[in-house]
Amino acid sequence: MSIQHFRVALIPFFAAFCLPVFAHPETLVKVKDAEDQLGARVGYIELDLNSGKILESFRPEERFPMMSTFKVLLCGAVLSRVDAGQEQLGRRIHYSQNDLVEYSPVTEKHLTDGMTVRELCSAAITMSDNTAANLLLTTIGGPKELTAFLHNMGDHVTRLDRWEPELNEAIPNDERDTTMPAAMATTLRKLLTGELLTLASRQQLIDWMEADKVAGPLLRSALPAGWFIADKSGAGERGSRGIIAALGPDGKPSRIVVIYTTGSQATMDERNRQIAEIGASLIKHW
């Protein structure tokens, strides 16, 4: 067993022997301040990774656009098919120029040779490549099948209805392509620590998230040296922004954090800054 596999296998073990965790309302004060600064709703939840206990939450059962955070769930569904012998990570998928959609920095470079399922998941999570996500959605049967996968996990809230990039439209009061912070946090925890996926697939999923290259201005910008984070960000229309993450000190994750916002007129930089400040408060009061 590799060191990384050992780390993920012992996530519940280490967490069980940690000192009790206590909620700190100071972080919620910052979440509410972010709402004021952005002029928009902000949803927040913080779960203990081992027990699933909610440590703090704000608007945990209000719907927010998922945006690209759905790509972690998508690759979880792909990995479940791999575990069941219905898919192979090494299978190569070929596609054409007509398949390319807006923001496809990886797939646009491989029109000639195609990409493997493993490479597509890596591109979808680490670079948020939209064509990679659409190609992977095709392998599982489309958005409705991802929703069905989530329902089978016990998540009857999260739903995907459309493809990239239309799913980022974020129309107010439109339930399409949305989740709730509580539902997303619980589902992410199941994917990373539950028995739904094999140990190898859980490790692969967290490795992809740990290698995320496009979430630097968010929670990662607030992390002290030595902290662990595996995350996936999302951005959408109407001032929408979000991030889902597993993080913790001492090089291992111990909490799940989900943050979503929508309806702001603020710039992307300002949305990023507010999420980073929430992260800084979380870490300060850990």
Rank of each mutant, 00 (worst) to 15 (best):
G142A: 12
A280H: 10
Q265P: 09
A266Q: 07
C121S: 06
D33V: 03
L150E: 15
L282E: 05
T131N: 06
V78P: 03
R162P: 04
G114M: 03
N98A: 00
K53C: 15
A123E: 15
G43F: 14
E210A: 13
D129P: 00
T107K: 09
N272R: 00
M180A: 06
Q265V: 10
K213F: 09
R63M: 14
E145L: 06
A170W: 09
N134R: 07
E119H: 14
K144V: 13
A215M: 05
W208A: 09
C121Y: 00
S96A: 00
G114N: 07
L205D: 08
K32S: 09
R273T: 14
A246F: 04
T187C: 09
I259G: 11
G85C: 15
I256S: 03
T179M: 03
Y44G: 03
T147Q: 09
L247D: 04
L219G: 07
R92N: 02
T116Y: 03
A225D: 13
I229R: 04
N98Q: 00
S68Y: 00
H24S: 06
L282C: 06
T131S: 11
V42L: 12
S264L: 10
E35D: 09
G90V: 06
G248V: 10
L74K: 15
G239L: 10
E108V: 00
L219W: 10
M67I: 14
R189Q: 15
P165G: 06
V257C: 06
Q37S: 14
L73E: 07
K30A: 15
I278F: 01
V257I: 03
A245Y: 10
L120W: 01
A225V: 09
S281E: 12
K30C: 15
D36C: 15
A148P: 11
M67E: 11
G85E: 15
E166G: 11
K213A: 09
T126D: 14
I256N: 12
R189S: 13
L55E: 14
P143D: 03
E35P: 13
M66F: 03
E61F: 05
N272Q: 12
F70E: 03
R271W: 03
M67T: 13
D231K: 05
E164R: 04
P65S: 06
D177E: 11
V117Q: 01
A211Y: 04
T262L: 06
Y260E: 12
M153I: 13
E61I: 08
D177I: 12
P249A: 10
E175F: 10
I243N: 05
A185G: 04
G242M: 05
L150M: 15
F228D: 12
G248L: 06
Y95S: 01
A276P: 09
S221V: 10
D48Q: 11
Y103K: 02
E270K: 01
V117T: 04
D129Y: 00
S233Q: 04
I229C: 09
S240L: 06
H24V: 13
A211H: 03
Q274P: 11
L120I: 11
R202T: 08
G263W: 14
R255K: 10
P224Y: 14
I229Y: 05
L223F: 15
L247F: 08
S96Q: 00
M268S: 03
S240M: 01
Q97K: 14
S201Q: 15
A211E: 08
I93F: 02
G242V: 11
L49D: 07
T261D: 15
N152D: 04
L282R: 07
C75W: 02
T158R: 01
K190Y: 15
E46G: 12
S57Y: 11
T198S: 11
R189M: 15
A215C: 07
K284Y: 07
V258I: 03
G216R: 07
E237Y: 05
N50T: 07
Q97S: 13
G43M: 02
A222K: 12
E87L: 11
R63D: 04
L74V: 12
L146W: 14
R202C: 14
A123G: 15
C75H: 00
H156G: 06
L191E: 05
G90W: 02
R162M: 06
V258H: 03
Q97H: 08
K109D: 15
R92S: 10
K71T: 01
N152A: 10
G141A: 12
E195T: 04
C121I: 00
D207I: 08
G242I: 04
E277F: 13
T178K: 04
R271G: 11
I140A: 11
E166N: 08
L199G: 10
A200D: 15
P172V: 12
T112I: 01
L73Y: 02
M66P: 07
L38H: 01
N130I: 15
V78G: 11
E119N: 06
R59M: 01
L219D: 13
E102S: 05
T131R: 04
R255L: 07
K213G: 03
H110R: 03
N152P: 11
R162I: 14
K109I: 00
D48P: 09
G52D: 12
G263R: 14
L191I: 04
V117S: 14
I45Q: 00
W163C: 12
I244C: 14
G76L: 13
Q204L: 03
E195K: 01
Y260I: 03
E210R: 13
L120A: 00
G234H: 03
A225W: 15
S281T: 07
A132S: 08
T262Q: 14
V117M: 00
A266S: 05
T139L: 06
G154E: 09
S281L: 09
P249W: 12
A183M: 10
P65R: 02
T186W: 08
L192K: 08
K32N: 01
G154W: 11
T186Y: 11
G76M: 14
A183N: 07
N98G: 02
L120K: 00
E145V: 11
V82Y: 14
P143G: 04
T107N: 04
C75A: 15
V42M: 12
R162L: 11
D231E: 12
E62R: 00
M115S: 10
E195R: 02
P253H: 12
I244G: 11
T187H: 12
N173I: 04
L79T: 15
K213Q: 03
E46L: 13
G142N: 04
A40L: 05
L192H: 11
L74M: 08
F228L: 03
Q97C: 14
D129R: 00
G279W: 09
T139S: 05
V42T: 15
T112G: 09
R241W: 05
G90E: 03
A133S: 07
D177L: 09
E237G: 09
T262H: 08
Y44M: 03
L47I: 07
D48W: 03
I54F: 09
A276W: 08
Q88C: 15
P165H: 02
T131M: 10
T198L: 11
I243V: 05
T116P: 13
P60M: 11
S51L: 01
L197A: 03
A148Y: 15
G85T: 15
G236I: 05
D129H: 00
A84R: 04
L111R: 10
I243A: 06
A185Y: 08
P181D: 01
C121N: 01
L218W: 11
T198K: 05
A280I: 15
R63C: 13
L38Y: 01
K284S: 08
W208S: 00
S96M: 00
P253L: 08
W208L: 04
L49H: 02
Y260W: 02
E62G: 00
V31H: 14
D83I: 01
E175C: 13
F149Q: 06
L28N: 02
G236P: 01
E166M: 11
E46Q: 13
T112N: 00
G263F: 11
D177N: 07
F228N: 09
K144Q: 14
L79V: 08
V72R: 00
R159S: 00
T158D: 06
N98P: 00
G263P: 15
T261N: 11
A230K: 14
G242A: 06
D36M: 09
L137K: 03
P105I: 14
T198P: 12
E166C: 09
T179K: 01
N50C: 09
E119Q: 09
A40S: 08
A123S: 15
M180H: 14
S201E: 12
T158S: 05
E102C: 03
R81I: 02
S240C: 04
L197G: 07
F70R: 04
Y103V: 08
E237W: 11
P172N: 11
L135Y: 07
Q88M: 08
G39C: 14
M66K: 00
H110Y: 13
E61V: 01
L55V: 12
M153N: 09
I244P: 04
S80Y: 12
E277L: 11
L89Y: 06
L247C: 13
L74C: 12
V157Y: 09
M180N: 12
T147W: 05
D155F: 15
G194Y: 10
Y95R: 02
T131Q: 09
L135W: 05
L192Q: 05
S68W: 02
L38M: 01
S221N: 03
D161W: 05
L89P: 06
K232T: 14
M184R: 13
G242R: 02
S281M: 01
A124S: 10
L282P: 12
E210G: 11
H156R: 07
L146P: 14
G85K: 14
R118V: 07
I171W: 06
N130F: 00
